[in-house]
Nucleic acid binder design. Structure first.
Lengths: 248, 248
DNA sequence: TAGCCGTTTTGATTTGCGTCAACACGTCCA
DNA sequence: TGGACGTGTTGACGCAAATCAAAACGGCTA
C-alpha cells in the first residue's frame, strides 16, 4: 500500500480549470460569437477538463444526465444499442463538437460515447449552462444553433441511409471527414481514420466487407490511396462525381 | 373581377389569437409543465393560428427561418431534397408536436413541411420564444427537451434504417403510430394512414412495392387488417415479435 | 524472432429488396 | 355512365449487398 506521494491524484482525472479564452477552438465550440467578457463568464460554467483514454466511455446509455461535453482534443463515436444486441454508430465527433445532447430530453443518456483515441473534454454542467444562457443571449442563441445543427446532421444521415448506395455513402463520409478536418486546420487530403471498418460500416448501414470493397474500388479508380487507416484523397472531383447519381 | 365582399379576407389565413390555456394539447405541447400564470405569458408569444390545407406547404427548404410551429390539429410530413431529385421523408408529425427546429441552425429552413390533411398550426416567432425562455425557466427547460427528443427520435430512425429489415421497419412504424395516437386519446388499434405507400416507403428507406407487400404479409399472418389507408391492429404481440430479431 | 490476435482484404455464393410490368381499385369530372 | 388519373396490389426477374469462408497483414508480447 505504499503509494509515491506525487501519484495520489491519478493523472487520468485531471481537474484542470477550463480556459475558453485561451482555447484555440473557441470559434468552433460553444463560446462562438461571444464577447471577451462573456467568455470569461463561460469559463465559470465549464467545470473541469477530463481526460478520456482510448476505448473508455465518456458516458453510457442509462447513466444519469447531468452535463454536456465539449471535445477539446481527440475523437469519439456515439452508438445506440437494441435489446437484441444490434447496435448502430450514430456519429463520430471531433474537437470543438458537443456531446451528450441526447440526454437533455430525459433523466438519462440514450446512447454511449466512446473515445476512439486518447481525448480531452470539457465538462459543462447542464444546469449551469441553462442558467447562463438565460443571462447571455448570444450563448442561448448559439446553443440552440448547436442543437439544431445536430438535427440537420441527423437528417443528412437519414438521407444517406435511406437513399444512397454503398459507394455513394462512403464517398459522402470521406468528403465530410475531409471537410471537418480542414475546418480544424488539418490537411483536407490526408488523414488518419480513428475508427475500424466495422464502425464505419455500422455508421453507414453497411457490413465491414462492403466498406472494405468500396475502399479498394476507390483506390483502383485512383480516387484515394488507402493504407490501413491512412487515407489520402487523390481526386476529390472524382469522389464528388459519385454523389448525386441516383440508383434508378 | 367581381369579388363578394365577405371573401376579401381569405378564410385560409385565419389570424385567430392562440389560447394555450384553453387548448387541450397543452400537456403535449410547449406549455407542458408551466403554471397557469406562465401559460398566460406564453399566449402572448404564440402569434396566431394558421390553417394549412392538405398538400400545402407550411414552409419550404430555403425559406427564411423566423418561427417554429406547434400543430394544433392535422398531420404533416417533413422531407429533404437532394439536388438530383431524390428525396427522403424525415418525419411525420401530429397534433402537439413542434415543426421547424431544423431552421434554427442557419438563416433558412433545410426541409419542407407539407400538410397531409387540412391542419391548423400555432405560429411561434422564434425571437419571441428565446426572449420568453430567458425569463421562464420551465419554458426553457421544456424547449430544450423538445429539441433533444427530436435528436433521440432521429437516432431511432437511423437505427431503423441502418439495421432493420423491411418487415421490422414497417412493424416499428405501425407500433410507433399506434402509440402516438393513443397518447392523443385515439384508438391504439384502429387508425387512418394520412400518407401514401410511397411516403411510408421514403420514410422507411423502402420502395412502395415493398411496403405494400409487407402490409399484405402482415394481413395474411393475421397481425393487422388493411383496407386502403384504414389500418386495424389485430395482434399487437404478433407485430412486436417481429422486432428484436436480428437478420444474422 | 516467433507466435498470437484483432483487423482487413478478397473470393464465392446467397438473398432481400429493387425494378419492371400488368392489373385492380376508388375518385373525380366530363 | 364512362374514361382518366392517382394509388395500391401482385408477379417475375435482376442485382447490390449480405453472408460465409479463407487468407494476409500489422502490432503486440513472450
Amino acid at each position: 500500500m505504499h503509494t509515491p506521494n506525487k501519484s495520489i491524484i491519478p493523472v487520468t482525472l485531471t481537474t484542470l480549470k477550463a480556459a475558453c479564452s485561451q482555447c484555440n477552438l473557441r470559434e468552433l465550440c460553444l463560446p462562438y460569437g461571444l464577447s471577451a467578457s462573456e467568455i470569461e463568464q463561460i469559463e465559470s460554467m465549464v467545470g473541469v477538463r477530463r481526460r478520456v483514454k482510448r476505448q473508455q466511455h465518456l458516458y453510457r446509455a442509462g447513466e444519469t444526465f447531468e452535463a454536456i461535453y465539449a471535445i477539446r482534443s481527440g475523437f469519439f463515436k456515439t452508438d445506440v444499442l437494441l435489446e437484441d444486441g444490434r447496435d448502430q454508430v450514430t456519429g463520430f465527433q471531433m474537437a470543438g463538437e458537443i456531446l451528450g445532447m441526447d440526454g437533455i430530453s430525459g433523466e438519462a443518456h440514450t446512447c454511449n460515447a466512446v473515445a476512439l483515441e486518447d481525448s480531452e473534454i470539457c465538462v459543462i454542467p447542464f444546469a449551469h449552462l441553462e442558467r447562463l444562457s438565460r443571462e447571455i443571449q448570444a450563448l442561448q442563441r448559439h446553443f440552440h444553433q448547436v442543437m439544431s445543427r445536430e438535427i440537420v446532421r441527423d437528417h443528412g444521415v437519414m438521407m444517406l441511409l435511406g437513399t444512397m448506395r454503398a459507394e455513394e455513402r462512403l464517398a459522402t463520409f470521406l468528403l465530410n471527414l475531409s471537410q471537418r478536418f480542414t475546418t480544424r486546420g488539418y490537411s483536407p487530403a490526408e488523414f488518419h481514420l480513428r475508427m475500424t471498418r466495422d464502425e464505419i460500416g455500422s455508421y453507414l448501414g453497411l457490413k465491414l466487407e462492403t466498406v472494405s470493397r468500396a475502399f479498394s474500388r476507390f483506390q483502383d479508380e485512383g480516387f484515394i490511396s488507402v493504407q490501413q487507416k491512412h487515407i489520402r484523397i487523390l481526386d476529390i472531383a472524382g469522389l464528388k462525381k459519385l454523389l448525386n447519381h441516383p440508383p434508378s
